[in-house]
Design a protein around this nucleic acid. Structure first.
Length: 412
DNA sequence: TGTCCACAGGAAATACGGGGGT
DNA sequence: ACCCCCGTATTTCCTGTGGACA
């Protein structure tokens, strides 16, 4: 049988027993906003994030009475639903305001990646249709002016949701001082700011003058517990998978694993997705064993993706450690040996090798990320050195090694 | 008991690179 | 286009160290 026929057969087999009916519901990135909201609605209906929703509602209730609530800060780790809950609520609030004829606008400024004050302000200006996107050539002052300009005649509520505030680098104070002190004084709108952050102490190193000016309520999003996660997962299973795809106890297991490790809903759904695709490949339902396998795969993927995106020197150091450790057949290698392996590796792939001192720091870093163990050991007359030992499954080490080599090959 | 190995790891010097101002 | 400044990466230099060995 030739390759093409094999592939066709394989594909047909998978199509014949689709376990995953709607893959998109296993990956939030692929859902359009309306679908996200629909999923969310079901989650909230299942009483998940009930306390948070109630508190946000209480905070914003004055809007409907034409009062002016203070600002709001949301704390919580990633995947605890800060963003989605807020967006969902704001949409709802907008609707209620429309029904009552209250002027209300809301804008979400998403700072998902670290960026300077300029970019953040520029993004905000774009969202408000104040100007186009600039790379530079326009002063911060000018940008602020434009923003104030478009808002000059708007007298209703303006709710500004700044997601992941701590991503504003460098002159964070300038950015916040503008939002907190200057903007409210210069525009007639009733400005309400919502800050979301995953660092509890975010505000502590902030210009005290801005801090003292900032009056706000705080709301903490706790990590999801196992019960919440079960509800969330069940909704996904219903939407994405064939009804008999999941054996008993699987959802409970995924929820238990996830709540124990992180309480992050997105990661829990990712584990479900991985389990589903494994099961589909095997042509069976998702079993407890499948979940274990999927969890292990995800765990291993963490290592390979981390090393793939790591600086090249770090990759070279790890490759050297692997080579040296293989040469020693299981016994621990010393710093000097690994350093020699490292220099050989660098010569082979044409990378400038670092001095010994810097290389030592690389090893320390690899140790921190748990790619290897390096403990300082004195061998008496034979000096002091770190004993370097790889403590990952052989198969994973091989995978990491391949990844690094591939990285160096394709780079040229 | 003293010596000395083979590094660890701190401090200071220096190179690099990007951004901002003129 | 040019320079300056500053934060970061890397190098250079240095002192310290536990224990095997004589």
């Amino acid at each position: 049988m030739n390759v093409k026929a094999k592939i066709e057969k394989e594909v047909r087999q998978i199509l014949n027993r689709p376990l995953i009916l709607n893959r998109r519901f296993l990956d939030d990135e692929q859902l359009i906003r309306a679908e996200q909201v629909a999923v969310l609605e079901e989650i909230f209906n299942a009483n998940v994030r009930d306390r948070e929703i109630r508190e946000i509602s209480a905070h914003f209730a004055p809007v409907l009475r034409d009062d002016h609530p203070v600002h709001l800060a949301l704390w919580g780790k990633t995947g605890t639903g800060k963003t989605l809950t807020t967006i969902y609520f704001l949409n709802l609030l907008a609707e209620m305001c429309r029904e009552r004829g209250i002027a209300m606008r809301h804008v979400q400024l998403n700072l998902s990646t670290p960026q300077p004050c300029f970019r953040a302000l520029n993004d905000l200006a774009c969202l408000l249709n104040a100007c186009k996107r600039y790379r530079k050539g326009i002063s911060l002052e000018e940008l602020m002016g434009r923003i104030e300009g478009v808002l000059a005649n708007y007298r209703g509520y303006l709710i500004l949701f700044v997601d992941e505030v701590d991503n504003v680098r460098r002159d964070q104070d300038t950015f916040l001082a503008f939002l907190i002190r200057r903007l409210p004084q210069r525009i007639p709108a009733k400005l309400i700011l919502i800050f979301a952050s995953n660092r509890l102490n975010w505000m502590e190193h902030l210009d005290p003058r801005v801090q003292s000016f900032l009056k706000l309520n705080e709301l903490i999003f706790d990590p999801y517990d196992a019960v919440d996660l079960q509800r969330i997962l069940n909704i996904r299973v219903e939407k994405a998978l064939r009804s008999d795809a999941v054996s008993t106890g699987v959802i409970e297991k995924i929820a238990a694993l996830s709540s124990r490790d992180h309480g992050d809903a997105r990661k829990a759904v990712a584990l479900l997705a991985r389990s589903a695709s494994l099961a589909e490949k095997a042509g069976s339902a998702i079993t407890l064993q499948t979940v274990d396998d999927a969890a292990q795969q995800i765990e291993q993927d963490k290592y390979t993706t981390m090393i793939r995106t790591a600086p090249r020197q770090l990759q070279a150091a790890l490759a050297a450690a692997i080579n040296a450790s293989r040469a020693k057949k299981g016994a621990t290698a010393s710093t000097g040996e690994v350093y020699e392996a490292y220099q050989r590796f660098c010569r082979r792939v044409g990378l400038r090798s670092l001095a010994g001192r810097a290389f030592g720091d690389l090893l320390a870093e690899l140790d921190m990320y748990a790619f290897l163990h390096a403990r300082v050991q004195s061998r008496g007359r034979y000096g002091r050195t770190r004993e370097i030992q790889l403590d990952l499954p052989d198969q994973l080490i091989a995978k990491i090694h391949d990844t690094i080599l591939l990285n160096f090959d394709t780079a040229k």
